[in-house]
Design a protein around this nucleic acid. Sequence first.
DNA 1: ACAAAAGTGTTGGAGATACACCCATGA
DNA 2: TCATGGGTGTATCTCCAACACTTTTGT
Lengths: 233, 233
Amino acid sequence: MSQNQSLHLSVDCVVFGYDDDGLKVLLINQKDSSPDQNSSPWSQLPGDLILLDEGLDQAAQRVLFELTQINGVYLKQFMAFGDPNRVKDLKDRAWLQSVRNLPEQRVVTVGYYGLVSLQDFTPRPASFAGGAQWVDLQEVGPLAFDHNIILDQAFETLKEQLESQHISFELLPKKFTLTQLQALYEVILDKKLDKRNFRKNVKKMTHVVPLDEKQTGVMHKPAQLFSYEPRKN
Amino acid sequence: MSQNQSLHLSVDCVVFGYDDDGLKVLLINQKDSSPDQNSSPWSQLPGDLILLDEGLDQAAQRVLFELTQINGVYLKQFMAFGDPNRVKDLKDRAWLQSVRNLPEQRVVTVGYYGLVSLQDFTPRPASFAGGAQWVDLQEVGPLAFDHNIILDQAFETLKEQLESQHISFELLPKKFTLTQLQALYEVILDKKLDKRNFRKNVKKMTHVVPLDEKQTGVMHKPAQLFSYEPRKN
DNA sequence: ACAAAAGTGTTGGAGATACACCCATGA
DNA sequence: TCATGGGTGTATCTCCAACACTTTTGT
């Protein structure tokens, strides 16, 4: 009835980052450990096999940290990807062969997505360990495995959950202006919003609180700063 | 870096069924293959390990059919459950021991939910092979493993997706009255709806089409019958 | 004084909600 | 003729979208 099967399970993390010039996603470069075989260094989402004694959420946190040094991000599971052929492409097998010893094994992956503020996290894109980099969402090329599909699916989920969950604030600095918040919404939803209507809506969000503080050093009327206070039920 | 690990992956199916007296879920009884050890026959969701060469969606269809003879149901993935201890409870290990030979192995499961019309499927609850049965949602007791959690999560997902996806119609007979449709919404959303307003909304749904047919055999004004025509894009 | 972004209210229309009576059938 | 659920329209309210000018700062 139930065969003695064995397969591998991984997590892949789609981490979105935001700064004033747009929405980025965190990618890593496959380190080409066998340079003679022309296995070109594809970009991919940070992901790896889970350990036998850790939970899925835990695994996502660990893997993300190991591969990118990013820690303590809110990561949310959005979907499992289990096509039997998802890692069977020639380019991907070559790379798996060079990194692991079981390239023929089937790998099912659980997708997580997360959000960080680039301002708070790393002042500027690059300068990461291990070849991690922020890539503008518009400029993401072909990725390893089925990672383009996973990325698209994560972005769809982000759009859907933008308003219902309180996730957008993860993408902003701790102190932000309403114009920044609006710009973020506009990037994710890909449409312009009306300033006055947007602010009316924000006023209803009790978890967005005005600070006794204003922008400084700008050559125009300084904006009120706000911060996000998660609801304490 | 990446250990040589091995774990098991299963699918679990939460199939909701609806008839005039409420919303049900499809459960199976564990066959107690070792009656001396007092491993009591817990109910559980239909689920089993996936095969190495099948996709997740495929596996869900196959497993559901093998365990309950139900075929061709729309099954949608909603979440993966990977707590390392999710099958480590004493009662569960005893049963796994009696059915498989690897009770210590970790099992991650991918949850699917689906919907069927009890009218169209089986006129009455019982009479299934292998101890499958429809249990009123209100009356579901403690299930094996973490299946209560999986069930709750599936029901949450159903509520959320009731209006956005066109899934409610799967729960109704092919020909249904507007009162039946409304009753279904009321059960799932757990609130009363206004009849006239509800019907106004249904009129806007172009995929709900009136038939040239009326209810018969009822001792009141016979209702117009409708059917669901999926949008042909 | 000028440039640049911040901040602020009102109105009209669409959509949601609340609500009560007559109708067709079988017994 | 009665009991039962089927079927229908209108008034009100709430929510959303559209829209333009004044304010504050730095240079």
